[in-house]
Design a protein around this nucleic acid. Structure first.
Lengths: 119, 119
DNA sequence: CCGTATCCCGGAGGATACTG
DNA sequence: CAGTATCCTCCGGGATACGG
């Protein structure tokens, strides 16, 4: 984060304001209540449906399925079904998915350095 | 972004999983459809209500007011009213608000490097 | 175990009209 | 100009029950 200068700011303020551009594109992927958390969870390696569910605080199966499908379509993660009994389904980040770690890391740092103001 | 190593990953995978922690804290601030875009807009300097509204693509006044109030309460931005006729209200990022630029920048880079897969 | 199928709810967000 | 006040819509997300 500390390479930070103002070239960063310049890029941020640059042209390409409004839809279709960098930030907006990212927001489409990291959208909703769960996407970012799912990616963080998978950064530690592939996980099964049930593992993910409990690690995230048990969202409903429908919700988790929906979000996983969305991320799969956006090629952020892959879904692998092992034809066994009982079935086993494993989710893993793609290269693109893993490349989101820089954003997650920036979020982590900011969050740690800016605790909630006391009310 | 390129200091990136795996110390980053280690931090991300570290303890403090689940609520209350870094990433989660940030997600509470950069929540919903507008917060991130408002911050980006204000990185180029203080702006009036109307300026913000049109720059963002004209969300409803209610929506924009709600989001601005929320960010104000979280001390991401300040609201200054100039008692003139017609009234002038200026929104500006606080130090905390400006410190979000690292995250925005990471989003910008990722978005530019990962265009939508063609369908 | 890993879903899908339904039904349901809250709240973010929009539309419109009106005010200091 | 910069909001409030109302009303309304949409959909992310939860609960529950069932299926391969």
């Amino acid at each position: 984060m500390e390479i930070n200068g103002d070239e960063q700011l310049d890029r941020l303020l640059g042209p390409c304001h409004s839809p279709g551009c960098g930030v907006d594109r990212t927001l489409k992927v990291l959208d909703g209540k769960w996407a970012t958390l799912i990616v963080r969870e998978l950064l530690s390696g592939p996980k099964r449906f049930g593992e993910l569910r409990s690690a995230l605080g048990t969202p409903s199966a429908k919700t988790l399925t929906d979000r996983l499908r969305s991320l799969e379509h956006q090629q952020i993660l892959t879904r692998t079904v092992y034809a066994e009994v009982p079935p086993r389904v494993v989710y893993a980040l793609t290269e693109q998915g893993r490349s989101l770690s820089g954003i997650l890391y920036a979020m982590l740092i900011w969050g740690e350095e800016h605790p909630l103001p006391e009310d």
